[in-house]
Amino acid sequence: MKPAFLRSPFSTLITLLTGLIVLLGYFLDFEPLREWRFRFLQWAILLAAVALFLGVFNLLRVHWGRLSESPSKAVYSLTFLGGFVSAVLMAGWLGIQHSLTRAVVDYVILPIEASLFVIILVTLLYALTRLLQHRLSVFSFVFLVTVLLSLIASIPLLGIEIPLLHGRDSLFSIALRILGTAGVRGLLIGVALGSVVTGIRVLFGLERPHGD
């Protein structure tokens, strides 16, 4: 199979040039590069916003198409379109800080999002309790015990705080913090390494996950 840069040479070249300019602007303290980098970033921010518009347009198109489908789907899509239009009218015409917009945020969006978080909470607890059933492993056991101990250490148990367990400077907290920090650092370094190598792969046209 031909490498991506041979299949789409023009796109690959554009990607490579812009990427290298911005990247060198990151690393090198050279004024023209910095300026170009800043300019390219501004354009990219604009393009990202346009992409958001196109994404929302796509969503509207999908729901518009569903209006002619089954009545149940049409009702859902109608609700979506209603929500969208009212939000645009409210925020765009009256303003984000208008009392009506604020009321919608306070009494519609916030309750929905907070309630969804409760659903997430129940889902997570449910998944956690079934973890050992799904994967009976050392990892699962350590994970579960950590969660439990961490929760126990976060509150006084019926008004009692155990010295070694409770408090941010207790032995338990310190131990968990050290071990946890080590894990977090390892994960972050690994993720960063993966990101960089993936980025290089696409930048040099060795792969185009978004194209031919």
């Binding site: 199979m1 490498p3 889902t123 997570l124 998944a127 956690l128 973890l131 799904h134 990892f139 994970f143 390892g186 994960l187 690994g190 993720v191 390494l193 993966g194 990101s195 190598v197 993936t198 792969r201 060795l206 792969e207 996950p209």
Partner: peptide, 30 residues
């Protein structure tokens, strides 16, 4: 994911997905 997914991928494992799917030279090299 550690609790809720059928098969969680931790850290860098997610970045190996393409290599494990097609095994192309560039992905293995990655």
């Amino acid at each position: 994911f550690a609790a809720a997914a059928s098969h969680p991928l931790f850290g860098e494992e997610a970045y190996a997905a393409v290599a494990y799917m097609d095994g192309e030279a560039v992905h293995r090299a990655s």
